Amino acid sequence: MLRIAVQSKGRLYEDTMQLLSEADIKVTASKRTLLVSAQNFPLEVLYLRDDDIPQSVATGVADIGVVGENEYQERGAEADIISRLGFSRCRLSLAIPKDIDYQGLEWFNGKTIATSYPVILNRFLDEHHIHADVHVITGSVEISPGIGLADAIFDIVSSGSTLVSNNLREVEVVMQSEALLIGHPDMSQEKRDILNQMLFRFEAVKQAEDKKYVRMNAPKAKLDEIINVLPGLKSPTIIPLADEEWCSVHTVLDQKRFWEIIGQLKDLGAQGILVTPIEKMIL
Score class of each variant (00 low, 15 high):
153 I>R: 00
239 I>D: 11
125 L>A: 03
146 G>Y: 06
116 S>R: 07
241 L>D: 02
57 V>N: 12
216 M>L: 07
210 D>P: 04
43 L>M: 03
84 R>G: 02
283 L>S: 13
259 W>S: 06
23 A>K: 03
226 I>Q: 12
130 I>K: 15
179 A>F: 00
22 E>T: 09
242 A>S: 14
262 I>E: 02
194 I>Y: 13
95 A>I: 06
178 E>H: 14
21 S>D: 15
51 D>L: 06
158 S>R: 08
14 E>H: 04
170 E>M: 06
140 S>Y: 05
180 L>S: 08
75 R>K: 14
117 Y>K: 10
25 I>C: 10
250 H>A: 13
264 Q>V: 02
193 D>A: 12
232 G>T: 12
214 V>Y: 02
136 V>H: 10
33 T>F: 10
107 W>G: 05
214 V>A: 03
116 S>C: 02
278 I>P: 00
82 I>Y: 00
226 I>V: 14
103 Q>C: 00
166 N>C: 07
224 D>Q: 03
1 M>N: 09
88 S>D: 11
268 L>Q: 10
201 R>P: 09
39 Q>I: 09
63 D>C: 12
210 D>R: 11
227 I>V: 12
244 E>K: 05
15 D>F: 04
193 D>Y: 07
88 S>A: 15
213 Y>C: 10
100 I>F: 02
9 K>C: 06
6 V>G: 05
102 Y>H: 11
79 A>Q: 13
260 E>S: 01
195 L>H: 08
10 G>A: 10
201 R>Y: 11
166 N>E: 11
107 W>Q: 04
94 L>R: 05
125 L>N: 01
233 L>S: 15
